[in-house]
Computed example of a mutant assay.
Amino acid sequence: MKNDCVHCGISFDFYEKGNFFVEGDSIDGYLDSSFTKMNDYIAYKPYSSLEEVGEEWKKYETSNNVRIGLSRSTKPERLIDPSTFMTRMQERETVSFIQRGALTSFLQPIISMGDEAVYGYESLLRAAGNDHTFSPGKLFQVAQKTGLHSLLDQRAREEAVKARQDKVKAGVKSFINFLPSTIYNPDFCLQHTFRIVEKYQINPSDLVFEVVETEKIEDVPHLQRVLERYKKEGMKVALDDVGAGFSTVDMLERLQPDYVKIDRSYIDRCDEDAEKQEFLHSTSDQAKKLGIITLAEGIERKEEFDLCKKIGFDLAQGYFIGKPAAQLVELR
């Protein structure tokens, strides 16, 4: 089990000038007279431009047994595999923003089906200010390719917790997305999030941590440990996109979430599709038997809202109710 932040995408800088480092069990074949060996496993050479670094990288392009990196001194900093190194270099503007750029959370309202009062808000990551046009999709795509998805996911969770400050009153829930694949050891990796919750004096029971993942999660026991760790701190957990991807209905009993969010593909024009209606009925019935709160997301039409309410869903979310915004807005 990985217990240090090196594996969680710690920052990596591309200096315009400095020293290029190479580390491995058999590096002699890569070295020329410009290198200085520190020991049998690591050596460095000076460079005066990133173009030089790009040329040097080509020597290691197909190597699986070395790590490379940059430093402004003769002491190595972070060393990574050559493939990830080059991807980060090619995407360094986005990588720099992932590491240090200003982020914020937009809030999208979630309402109770019964009285249509605000129940909570989902926090959605955005680039802050007008100087950057990075979309959340772009940020997470590059983060995944460059090994920085854990760092970005951690930063997103922090911004989501901070978004409650002076905006969301106590008792109203905050739904916060997280990627289970970025949490290697729940006891260790979630400490940063728990410290942020304590720092901003947020009631843990007002936070709902929501599993999101584009690929199927195969390590269900690991996911169980992550969810149990959140619950141990007094927080709630939710499964997103039930009915698509890994979150199939038969996982509800095994994972025992506090909430389930139905995949929007089953909500879209559900009033016109008998098969979707059958799925919504069966999911709602099973969740109620397990004491799980149900949320229909992606509602964009009154007909969808009315049907989900009739079926018995507890909560609703979507453009019909309210769009994500930097500030809280009055509902329809």
Rank of each mutant, 00 (worst) to 15 (best):
L307H: 02
V242Y: 01
S71P: 03
Y30V: 09
F21K: 06
F209V: 02
G9F: 08
N39M: 02
Q317H: 06
S265K: 11
E228M: 04
A238I: 08
V212W: 10
S63C: 09
P76A: 05
F209N: 03
A43T: 03
H7R: 06
Q286K: 14
L280F: 12
N64W: 08
N3R: 13
D263H: 12
D206C: 05
Y41T: 13
L207P: 00
D271F: 10
I311V: 07
R225S: 15
L295Q: 03
L31F: 07
T146L: 01
L148S: 11
Q90W: 10
S34I: 10
V197S: 14
E93S: 07
F14D: 14
Y319S: 01
M89L: 15
Y200G: 03
A170Y: 11
Q154K: 11
L307V: 11
F209H: 05
N130G: 13
Y259T: 09
I292Q: 14
S33K: 13
S11L: 12
R126Y: 00
F305M: 12
G101E: 02
D250Y: 14
E213C: 03
P324I: 05
H222N: 08
S83V: 15
S96I: 04
I267P: 01
A274F: 06
I202R: 12
T214G: 13
R229D: 01
D219C: 03
H149F: 05
L70F: 02
Y41M: 11
